[in-house]
């Protein structure tokens, strides 16, 4: 019985959520009393695997095949299925990235299992491991249990285990060659690209006023623009504001937009779904203005104002103009 951590890499580097999952896996291994292994699929993995050789791991599996050079759901599912059938881990952990979303549910289904997706914590209760997940876009939490048996597939939310250090030690690297045929891979993936050059770099902004769906319509944006001006801040937005075309896409903060770390982040009419929060939780001071006292954005706010943004935002802009910064 062991823990297998499925690592993710891009451009010849391990991705940060993969390191977090590795640390989480080591913690889980210690809790459950199981050795921990890591695996990755791709081509030319030697250098990457080397970076894991001094971590506290039993073994690192480098699954290499020319058909794994570009990620495909079919290729990665088949490659990992083969390894899992061979080494029979008890827990299989993934970072909850877009790539994991794309193939881990399929992989779990091959074993008749359900992935416990987007887990933020776990706890051992009565000898069984309960996983904490968010429901209703972060408004509620739930303790969930996977059906008894193995393997148990789990994906870990980015940031949830960020404070756990990766334990060092030594690991043996083992190359694995999966059984893959070109006909098994049905999708033809193109190279990743960025839509257009960004006209605003929000990551450098010292202050940001971010607006969410609470603003109700493009015609109301004026009040947040005035607040941003009074604060000397950049204007940013949650996804629905950009989806609706009220602000351009390059103002979007979150997992599919920009990651920002300003000194001050003022969230106006934003509920605080995790896909937004991952983009802004590095802000030093967070102010949230929301009419719903239970909105998850308040969980990450230093200062909260519960009320109608259409009253509070103009009042705040006026107060700043009275005492300019």
């Amino acid at each position: 019985m062991s823990v297998l951590v499925v690592m993710e890499h891009r451009g010849g580097e391990w991705r940060r959520p993969a390191w977090e999952t590795l640390a989480a896996g080591q913690q889980l291994g210690a809790t459950a009393g199981m050795p921990v292994c890591a695996a990755a699929a791709g081509t030319g993995l030697e250098k990457l695997a080397e970076q894991l050789a001094d971590k506290r791991l039993e073994r690192v599996y480098a699954i290499e095949h020319e058909l794994l050079g570009a990620y495909t759901a079919d290729g990665f599912t088949a490659a990992l299925e083969g390894l899992i059938r061979q080494i029979r881990p008890y827990y299989v952990l993934f970072p909850h990235t877009y790539q994991t979303r794309d193939f881990a549910p399929k992989l779990a289904a091959r074993f008749g299992r359900v992935l416990v997706s987007d887990v933020v914590a776990w706890r051992l209760e009565g000898g069984r491991l309960g996983f904490v997940r968010q429901l209703f876009q972060g408004k509620l939490n739930a303790d969930v249990y996977a059906a008894e048996g193995e393997p148990t597939f789990v994906s870990v939310q980015a940031g949830a285990f960020a404070s756990v250090p990766v334990a060092t030690g030594s690991a043996e690297v083992q190359r694995v060659t999966p059984q893959l045929e070109p006909t098994m891979i049905r999708a033809r993936p193109g190279a990743p690209f960025q839509e257009s050059r960004r006209s605003v770099d929000l990551s450098a902004a010292e202050r940001i006023v971010a607006v969410g769906r609470g603003i109700k319509g493009q015609q109301n944006l004026k009040i947040v623009e005035e607040l941003a001006e009074a604060l000397g801040a950049e204007l940013a937005a949650s996804r629905p504001v950009c989806d609706n075309g009220w602000l351009p896409m390059d103002r979007q903060v979150g997992s599919s937009g920009q990651v920002v770390a300003p000194k001050l982040y003022v969230a106006v009419g934003i509920s605080g779904a995790i896909q937004h929060v991952v983009g802004m939780k590095g802000a030093r001071t967070v102010v949230a203005i929301n009419k719903d006292r239970e909105a998850p954005i308040f969980e990450v706010a230093d200062y909260g104002i519960v009320g109608d943004l259409f009253e509070i935002v103009p009042a705040l802009a006026a107060a700043l103009r009275k005492a300019p910064i």
């Binding site: 303790d143 996977a146 949230a288 308040f298 969980e299 200062y303 909260g304």
Partner: peptide
């Protein structure tokens, strides 16, 4: 394949001053 054992309000991460 999954069982929801308990649903509850999430604990705050930061001390929010309201």
């Amino acid at each position: 394949g999954l069982r929801i054992a308990r649903v509850y309000a999430p604990p705050p991460v930061k001390q929010t001053q309201f």
